[in-house]
Computed example of a mutant assay.
Amino acid sequence: MMIAEILLFLALACLILACITDVVRFEIPDWISIAILVLAVGYGLTQPDFGWWSHLLAIVAMFVLGMLLFGTGVMGGGDVKLLVASSAWTGLSGLPPMLLGVALAGGLLAFLLLVVREGLRQANVPEERLPGMFRAGAPLPYALAITAGMLWWGWQAWPLA
């Protein structure tokens, strides 16, 4: 396996770990986002034609958008940091398809959780017996949507350049 593929695999592992921690604790540890960002830089160093400015501008654009989402209470800080780190992989041209994937997956996730939560409520399942994400009013573990968006982008952009 080449170094670039190892870095990509490690980034995917970090995204999966972010999903797990977000589902279990509604929290994405900072080190995961930092690792994804560092892995993107490492990947860029393995690519002779890596568009450094494009990737830097994607990070800045996602940071600005993320601060707006965080400031209005739409997203949590961990979600924003994960999106910013993920944008280091996409570059500017990959940002719209990645964000479209995130938005679609987030909408589907919200819909499914609403249906499941309502079904559990109607079945009179005591809330204290439910995993956190199925409890009424619990936040959305948005790392799932972010990871889905990254997979959508990666599938379209493969092989990464």
Rank of each mutant, 00 (worst) to 15 (best):
G51D: 15
L108A: 14
S87M: 01
G132I: 04
A103H: 09
I146D: 00
L92C: 04
Q47P: 01
G78D: 11
G119I: 10
P141N: 06
G94S: 13
Q47W: 05
G101L: 00
F134S: 07
I59Q: 11
P141F: 03
W52F: 06
H55Q: 09
R121A: 11
M98S: 02
A85V: 06
A105E: 07
S86C: 13
S86E: 06
V116M: 14
R129Y: 05
L57D: 03
D79W: 11
G77T: 12
S86V: 11
N124Q: 13
M150W: 15
W89K: 13
L109W: 14
A136K: 15
P48M: 08
P96C: 06
E127W: 04
A145T: 12
Q47H: 12
M98V: 09
L56G: 10
V64N: 06
A123H: 02
M133I: 15
L100V: 09
R129T: 15
V84A: 02
F134C: 12
W53D: 12
V74N: 02
A88G: 14
D49V: 04
L120R: 02
V74W: 10
L104I: 13
V80A: 05
L69W: 08
M150C: 07
E128L: 08
S93L: 15
A58I: 12
P141C: 05
S86I: 13
P97S: 14
G119T: 03
A88E: 05
M67S: 00
S54K: 12
T147N: 00
M67L: 10
G106T: 09
P96N: 09
L140D: 08
V74H: 09
L112T: 10
M62L: 15
L83M: 14
A143K: 08
L68H: 08
L109V: 05
Y43N: 04
Y142F: 15
K81I: 02
G51E: 14
V84R: 04
S93H: 15
G137Q: 06
A123G: 01
A138Y: 11
G149R: 03
A145L: 07
W52G: 01
M133H: 09
K81A: 06
W52I: 02
L120D: 01
R121N: 03
L57K: 07
L99G: 04
W152A: 13
G106H: 09
A145H: 08
L69N: 00
L130P: 00
L151W: 15
F134I: 00
G101W: 02
G101K: 00
M98H: 11
L108W: 15
A58V: 02
T72G: 04
D79A: 05
L104D: 06
M133D: 01
L65P: 00
E128N: 07
L140A: 05
L144P: 01
G44C: 05
M150R: 03
A61P: 08
G44M: 13
G77V: 08
T72C: 03
T147F: 04
M62R: 05
R135G: 03
L100K: 08
I59M: 15
F63W: 07
T46W: 01
F63V: 01
L113I: 12
M98R: 10
M75I: 13
D49G: 08
L45E: 14
A105S: 10
F134E: 04
I59H: 06
V102Y: 02
R129I: 04
S87T: 12
A123M: 11
D49Q: 10
M150D: 04
A103D: 02
L120H: 00
I59R: 03
L100D: 05
L92R: 09
L104P: 03
W152H: 14
L83F: 09
R117I: 09
